[in-house]
Amino acid sequence: MMLLLSIAVSALSVTALALRDPKRLRWRQKLARYGATPAKGFSPLPRRRRRWLLTAMLVPGVLLALTGMWASLMLWLGASLTYGWLLSEVLAARR
C-alpha cells in the first residue's frame, strides 16, 4: 500500500512536471508555428512550483528509505523512472 501510494505521488508529480515543462512547451510552440497542434492550456511552470514538484517527486523515496523499506524503495525508484521515460516518449509522439 505504501508502495502504491509512493509510486502514485511520484508519478503525479512527474506528470505535472512533464506537462508544464518549459523546454518541452517551448519546442511545442515552435512546432505549432508549422501547423502541429499546440499544447493548449499548458503554460510553463514557474521555477518555484517546479522545485516544489521535484521535491514532491522525491519525498516518497526519502520516506521509504527512512523507514527502511528497501524493497519498496527499489520498486518505487524503478517504477517512477520507467514511468518518467515512457511518459516523455508518449508526450513527444503526440502530434
Binding site: 518541452r24 523512472l81 520507467t82 521515460w85 516518449e89
Partner: peptide, 27 residues
C-alpha cells in the same frame, strides 16, 4: 532540465540526441 525534452524532426541529429539522452537520463 532536459529530462522531458524529446524533439522529433525527421530523424536528424537532434532527434537522435534527444532519444538517447532522455532515455539515458531516466535510466
Amino acid at each position: 532540465k532536459d529530462a522531458f525534452l524529446r524533439r522529433r524532426r525527421g530523424g536528424d541529429v537532434l532527434s537522435h540526441k534527444d532519444a538517447h539522452v532522455m532515455a539515458s537520463t531516466w535510466n
